[in-house]
Write a protein that binds this DNA or RNA. Structure first.
Lengths: 286, 286
DNA sequence: GAGGAATGTGTAACCGGTTACCTATTTTGA
DNA sequence: TCAAAATAGGTAACCGGTTACACATTCCTC
């Protein structure tokens, strides 16, 4: 008889390992993280690991709870798309860990994209395509990727005659908040004709706000987002965006984590992925 | 010293239970299932259980793999928002199980909404608000909830002089497919002035297709979706929809499952939740 | 104060694998 | 052919809890 199935729990107990890793995401309803999860899962499965998805809902408390809970269960490692943990905590956790998209500490390997370059790409395109007053809907204060993208925007517009810091408003990476922010922004500056949003969700929120006010996109205002989530192709007009290879980010992060778990040497712990500008319906390109 | 932390794996081994349940969803990128997951997680956490989210990607193979894998890990129960398993399989699995939204077998407790009633609600509203030719973008053939919603539509329009079965087209519950289907539909029947879609995603796809063709919503065509996902409020115009309490569905399913696991008696295994029509920007209501 | 119940403590077996170690067998080479 | 080495098979301890059962102690009642 060959119908013997080993008992995973018993094995885990003696090996102190479960062949399971956890992916922490701050917001499961953001398609960006879903695509990331798909990629991570694919790679881990290939190596015989199971992935479990943890939605922290942007809450540090939930995140810590999950971590304690999972450590007790002999989880083998973490991929963090969140950044609430302090450096100390990570140090004393003493479990293989990789950061993706957002990074909370320089001590752990990080996979991210060239945010500043990407932002410049977007703003360049807006300028080239005739915009004469460009606003930026930015992500949360203190979040590294939001700062970088904002910086990329500033790099190109800071010295423009029309520039004022009031053209930068916060949308917290969320659709609804960005829509609100955009409404206020356009009320105060009706002559804005270009918007670079810190992520696609906020760009879509901006689009929605403009449509509500009867402002034509891209005729009157051009919009570019950031991320390249599939939702960007599902709105009308389709969203122009700075696309990062989300799938690749997930795959690389997963591979790095597994190597760390299995103690295989890594030549390069950090990865910065290239981004590319995809122009669609919200911009007036060639 | 009170810093003793019991070892979960050892406990699981001897108790043959992990205080963990799994939620299976067919498509993690569909916001409906995210909202469901949030609800399930909330309840299970309350009862001391951990939930793990499994994305089956509509694939029966992946689903079976997960199930095998998890059974070996002493999972305590399953909540299935999928319907690929056969009745036999469920029987011989011999693990507490609850179906939510979709049901694959009458032998397991099911939490769903009054689909047929909901569809009627939508079509009634369209008729009342002046539509004289209403189409239906339906969900996958063979899927119970899709059939029910289609039936609800038929209940009201089957005997109308303008009705023809060609007004029913398949969109597979997906945004893109529905947009394509809608385009074709409107090319053949330009006089359609109302659409009831089998879910919100398809309604949004329809909206997108119409916008692309310069057809004004709700002036020329009114649209109603089904589900009440939050994305419905994020498009412009905001989508009118038949809202089911997704959160409640998740909570009820979780509670039923936990009771089954802990062998507490249930008076009522099946639940059919009420739905309500929410009119927003895609309909011309009073 | 003795008999019985009620409560407390201690120990060993068990959950089902992994692994280190010891003995038995086969293989290899001089 | 025989000793040493390589391989095979078997056993016991261990991972870290749970639980059942034996035994000791306290309490209550007549």
């Amino acid at each position: 008889m060959l119908n013997y199935v080993p008992n995973d729990v018993a094995r885990s107990l003696s090996k102190k390992s479960t062949k399971t890793i956890a992916l922490f995401v701050p917001d499961i309803t953001n398609p960006f993280f879903n695509e990331l999860a798909l990629a991570v899962e694919k790679v881990t499965q290939l190596y015989g690991y199971t992935t479990i998805l943890c939605n922290t809902n942007e809450s540090a408390k939930i995140e810590r709870q999950y971590i304690q809970n999972l450590k007790q269960k002999y989880i083998d490692g973490f991929i963090m798309a969140t950044n609430t943990l302090t450096e100390e905590e990570i140090d004393q956790l003493d479990i293989p860990m990789v950061a993706v998209d957002r990074s909370s500490s320089p001590v752990i390997p990080t996979v991210t994209s060239k945010n500043r370059d990407g932002a410049q790409l977007a703003v360049q395109a807006l300028l080239r395509q005739g915009c004469s007053k460009i606003a930026h809907i930015r992500g949360p204060k203190g979040l590294w990727i939001a700062e970088e993208r904002c910086q990329g925007y500033l790099d190109l517009v800071e010295n423009m005659p029309w520039f004022t810091p009031k053209l930068i408003v916060n949308g917290n990476f969320q659709l609804k908040e960005a829509a609100e922010a955009a409404k206020k922004l356009f009320k105060e500056h009706p002559d804005i004709d270009g918007v670079f949003a810190g992520n696609d969700l906020m760009a879509i929120g901006t689009l929605r706000a403009l449509q509500e006010h009867g402002i034509r996109v891209p005729d009157q205002v051009q919009i570019i987002g950031y991320d390249g989530i599939s939702l960007a192709e599902m709105v009308y007009p389709e969203l122009s965006t700075v696309s990062q290879s989300i799938y690749e980010m997930g795959m690389i992060a997963a591979r790095i984590l597994i190597k760390k778990i299995e103690q295989i040497h890594l030549d390069e712990e950090n990865h910065q992925l290239e981004v590319k500008l995809i122009q669609r319906g919200t911009t007036r390109h060639g």
